[in-house]
Design a protein around this nucleic acid. Structure first.
Lengths: 225, 225
DNA sequence: ACAATAGTGTCTCTTAGACAATATCGA
DNA sequence: TCGATATTGTCTAAGAGACACTATTGT
């Protein structure tokens, strides 16, 4: 019946030096052994309740990231994408703050700026491109980029993140109005980002309700507002 | 390796009596033999270049629909969704005009209003819900609903289609401004919808460039504008 | 002529962006 | 106090919706 190779691949994105970077790993098996590629794994029907779990488990095992924002991207399939034969990969994308990545990360994770990626094996280039488009599109009308910040952050910092993702400057007043009406953030009372030679900024965090967004595609729609 | 059941399912949507309807078929195999469900099929690695082709082929075979608007929705997977075992279904949604459906349709296709669906086997209810949400969401900022109209249509007709999909009235002037700036329609010169006891309406059609939208998830993003 | 809907012009109100004034830190 | 950036207030311009007027058909 099924001579179909079923895998999951994850586009793990983070912000580094103000630019989106994707996490790549040296493959430890053929095909393309030793080549940088997206972290991926076979779907294990005996271990995983669904492919979302496959993706989360694989990501934890290969990068040490425990609970990033993780959302299904799309499924890539066909005869020609894998030299081993007809294959199907359910692709996910994940967002993490650079800080939560650095300490936990497996030593051979490479961060590549998404704008400077050359060649990737399989159709991983297309998958990365699709993920970046998705993140840019959703960022224009949702709170998605907060997942690229750490636990707490200032509004100017969050604005810089949005600007990095969208690739264009944002009006400060409009940005704050938008964030205000999204009503997803709360002030961390009394906490200010101090130490800079200017007025300190108020720290914010996601309201508890929006914290853990291991979203399926349907739950993701709710995250819009 | 792969004891995973790989299938495609299609949520075929059309507009009937001003409400979204989904095409359901009586299953001709166990499990759930004889029960109404989404049209679906196994992915045939030896016949289909990818799952998009699987979906198109299956839809053509089971409903006679040759080239609808067809876009990947999401992939549903897991141990419990199918009594036969761990399964994975790449779900697509398709949009067609009611007229292009009626003549070609296989006799045992049932159209059910999406608001009145009771129970469906597997997780097909969730799949339908996700498709309807997707269509509603995309319709708010794109030209998606034109695919629910026939080859040619009037602007008042198109507006009624948008209103049916979105479930709320739209301002006429704003609607026409929006359609105008999307710049995806062209007048069918000289063609008017006549026969009614009032001023006849200009007929329009999709510009050639936007006709055939058998879109993959990445191509779909372009269809936004 | 009348009823009915198509198509268009214009006014107003909401909202997004520009500008700028004030606040608060370290040096 | 000065330099720097946070935060807030206000003005303006662009866009969306309400309203209404004209156009064109069948009856």
């Amino acid at each position: 019946m099924s001579d179909i190779i079923c895998t999951v691949d994850v586009v793990l994105l983070t912000l580094k030096n103000g630019a989106l970077h994707v996490a790549l790993l040296k493959r430890d098996h053929p095909p393309f052994e030793g080549v940088l590629a997206l972290p991926g794994a076979y779907v294990q029907a005996d271990e995983d309740a669904d492919t979302q779990e496959s993706a989360a488990r694989m990501l934890r095992a290969k990068t040490g990231i425990a609970s990033p924002y993780l959302e299904q991207l799309a499924t890539f399939s066909g005869r020609c994408r894998d030299p081993r034969g007809w294959s199907l990969s359910v692709a996910y994308y994940a967002l993490v703050a650079e800080k939560s990545l650095v300490p936990a990360v497996h030593p051979d994770v490479t961060l590549s700026a998404v704008e400077q990626i050359k060649d990737l094996p399989f159709d991983h280039r297309q998958i990365v491109d699709a993920a970046v488009r998705r993140v840019r599109d959703k960022s224009a009308y949702s709170s998605l980029p907060v997942h690229l910040c750490g636990e707490t952050f200032t509004l100017p910092r969050l604005q810089a993140v949005y600007e990095a993702v969208l690739g264009e400057p944002i009006n400060k007043v409009s940005f704050r109005r938008k964030i205000e009406e999204l009503a997803i953030l709360e002030r961390v009372e009394g906490a200010m980002e101090t130490g800079k030679a200017h007025r300190p900024a108020q720290l914010y965090r996601l309201k508890k309700h929006f914290r853990q967004c291991l979203s399926l595609s349907d739950r993701a729609l709710n995250a819009t507002h």
